[in-house]
Nucleic acid binder design. Sequence first.
DNA 1: CTGGGGAGGGGGCCC
DNA 2: CGGGCCCCCTCCCCA
Length: 565
Amino acid sequence: MELPNHAKQLLLQLNQQRAKGYLCDVIIVVENALFRAHKNILAASSIYFKSLILHDNLINLDTDMVNPSVFRQVLDFIYTGKLLSSDQVSDHNFSALLTAASYLQLHDLAALCRKKLKRSGRSLLTKPTTPTNGRTSRNQRLSSTPVTQMLISGLKDSDKPKRREELLKEELSEDEMFIGSTANSLSPSTSKNGSNGTTTSNNNNISSNSGGIQELGLDLSKKSPSGSTATEEVSPSSIPQESPQSASESTANSASFEENPTNPQMVGGEPMILGDAGGGGEESQPPPDVDPHSKNPPRPTARSRQRPKGEANKADDSERAALPNGVAKRLNVNKSSDGTFQCKEEDEGMENGQEQSEESGNSESEGGRNSANYVYRQEGFEPALGDNLYVCIPCGKGFPSSEELNAHVETHTEEELYIKEEEEEDVFPKEEEAEAEDLSSQASLVNSGGEARRFSCSVCSRSYKDPATLRQHEKTHWLTRPFPCNICGKMFTQRGTMTRHMRSHLGLKPFACEECGMRFTRQYRLTEHMRVHSGEKPYECQLCGGKFTQQRNLISHLRMHTSPS
DNA sequence: CTGGGGAGGGGGCCC
DNA sequence: CGGGCCCCCTCCCCA
């Protein structure tokens, strides 16, 4: 017994979800356009994607191999099994599609393109790879995850591209050169903005693609105090900042992303349709001998890296430190072991398929389960909400998109929210009140020295010099966090914090040390770091006279004095 | 092996 | 909105 349309329907649903961004767990950056998609779908479509998205939520594609409009077609094809009609796609476009398909290892799409080009009597500029060819599969292995390979390869950066090219030239026949030729342009260290390898994220396979960053609606650039860097090439043009979510959707628009993905621009002519929409992918192909990286993930682990290079395990840290402590305290949200952003940690020992689903599950459910005060993409379908998956916790209303939710959240007055908060007294139990009071008394201590602070918080009685600061502070009492990270979904109370957080996703380290070249995400870090070179140790322990370059180390040192042992 | 120090990184939050 | 600071987590190194 078999449902004839099952695969088709499933794909249709997924494509609709893609259009809404629902459960999308990966962003693909192509030049200045962002595309949201589902990891599982991409992984099922291409070995290349499979290895790329294993540990990354943000994929930067080589713009020499694919441009936004071509990638849009590629993505449409992945989700529908259909290509635009030949009326819509010129031979030139088919060549571009073939290039992209080969690069992305979408064999079915590549085959379609080749067929089309052959039919139109055009000699192929780039000869095809034959998926059934044994050599090709080795070839694919070589080129399947160029970025990954660069990252894990023992070769020196400078040697890698050359060596790869040599390998390919040595071993590949003419028709294989096509894929091979992609390889040397993919590494972050060799791509156009990758000349400064240090700006490349250590675990995001991206470089500082200014376009992509801009398209996130955020100006993540910073002026480095030390002069020219690749990072500075990021355009500082300020983008109207709506919610990142909306930014990403406007991105989609700007990239002519589908408005009606369920019927992806089937304007006239006969579309090329894969025989089986659901089964045409990798499933039908010989077992991949490719992708040795799936077991040696592309992401260098913290331990495998040398600290002195200056690239600490950013994402690991962010994943571990993701729980906002302040909020956890205030709202009595325990730091649970299932915590946040642990997907990558869990990944380490898992096999691909399982891993991907687990990972996306984790990251996706992040907003929902992380803590009570996070309102974002409620997991599980609530029938009453229908497609309104973005739920405002205080009032329970659902919205179809995060920006609508955000707009709605703004309409809640602080008073409403506080009333709501008080009603939910269990959210703020007695101990927490005590703690809050404690904090506020600390605050008043701090405040007491300064000038008059006329603006007091009605919740915790902290006071501030100006109403804007008070308002900012009051947001910390809200049950909602209006600023979601477009990449991992983590929510923030302040846009600036979210922007800063995004920088870490994107590997932007605008602040460079003139002495050693080490780069930092924040000016303050650089300032701290400079003490390493100057030998300055401004923090002194009053108990033992020990001196420290960083205050935090003095603090942890003091703990050593005060701890019972 | 362990504890302490140094240092990188993240989030919260006030200015 | 960015800067600066605080606090926390974590890793690495070394005695």
